[in-house]
């Protein structure tokens, strides 16, 4: 059923230290629908509630009000099945390399599948596939995760979540702290994985550029509420509002905004150098021709 959203929240609210004088709302009345198979970028600055939201998706936190529905079912309906929810919504937290603990890469990736109680041959298959998904050769399987470089550790940790074959893969800042090449590799890897498996992916990030490059839709969180949830183009059309929320809009979008301030009628929902190049080139040629 493609029409039922895979993940849905209904008026989800979460309040820290409820009932005390230091009550802080981390989520207020959040109702979103994540469709089967889409790649959603989740954006917002620190404290906007985006991290709290994803902790609700796999039941690490329980809302003080509202519901989270996975495939139409309330995830808290049966408390004994909470672990099953975590296998279906796989969350990879920030700096996941710090969760590695096994002697070998293969064993570490197998931790999730083993907790699921899968048979050994299935676990082996998944470990192999997860390694391929993150672009690491089979030589890595028997290495110690602690001997790898930072970027490789990151990929092994992500593979550990992929090996659970979740229906929804949530990645919290998977590129944090990596260099440009590392960032590009991880983003490409996520895009490929989604292409190959058709899995629903949520990508939490600070970087608009990252999201613009691979997401179908963007969920913008601001002050514990949903500010926008729309296609990349439509969200970037609100570039000025995004800026007032303290978000870093892509440089190319900034350029378009500044041209618009100067009185040019240009679209502001452009974010790659190529897009802007095309637009400006056309305008410039058009102008040159017009003047001739």
């Amino acid at each position: 059923m493609n029409d039922t959203p895979i993940l849905r929240t209904e008026n989800l609210t979460y309040i820290y230290q409820k009932g005390t004088s230091s009550e802080v709302a981390a989520l207020q009345d959040v109702s979103v629908e994540i469709r089967q198979g889409e790649l959603v970028g989740v954006i917002g600055h620190t404290g906007s509630g985006k991290s709290t939201l994803i902790e609700h998706f796999n039941a690490l936190k329980k809302g003080t009000a509202g519901r989270v529905l996975l495939d139409g079912n309330d995830i808290w309906a049966d408390k004994s099945k909470i672990r099953a929810v975590r296998f279906r919504v796989g969350v990879c937290f920030q700096y996941p390399e710090y969760q590695l603990f096994e002697e070998t890469v293969a064993k570490d990736i197998a931790f999730g599948p083993r907790n699921m109680g899968l048979p050994q041959d299935e676990i082996d298959r998944r470990v192999k596939e997860a390694l391929t998904n993150v672009g690491l050769s089979e030589d890595y399987a028997e290495k110690s995760p602690f001997d790898l470089s930072g970027g490789e550790k990151r990929r092994v940790a992500i593979a550990g979540i992929m090996a659970m074959e979740p229906q929804v893969l949530v990645l919290d800042e998977p590129c944090a702290g990596l260099d440009p090449r590392g960032r590009a590799t991880v983003l490409q890897m996520i895009a490929d994985y989604r292409q190959k498996t058709g899995c629903t992916v949520l990508l939490v990030t600070h970087s608009m550029e990252e999201v613009a490059a691979i997401a179908d839709r963007i969920l913008v969180m601001n002050q514990s509420r949903v500010a926008f949830f729309d296609t990349v183009d439509n969200v970037f059309a609100h570039a000025e509002e995004l800026q007032t929320m303290g978000l870093d809009i892509p440089q190319m979008t900034q350029l378009m905004l500044s041209l618009r301030e100067k009185g040019y009628d240009v679209p502001v929902n452009l974010y790659t150098v190529q897009q802007v190049y095309d637009t400006i080139f056309a305008r410039w040629k058009g102008g040159v021709h017009g003047a001739q």
Partner: peptide, 8 residues
């Protein structure tokens, strides 16, 4: 939390 997410 990270290990719980892996089913620990």
């Amino acid at each position: 939390n990270a290990q719980k997410a892996r089913g620990a």
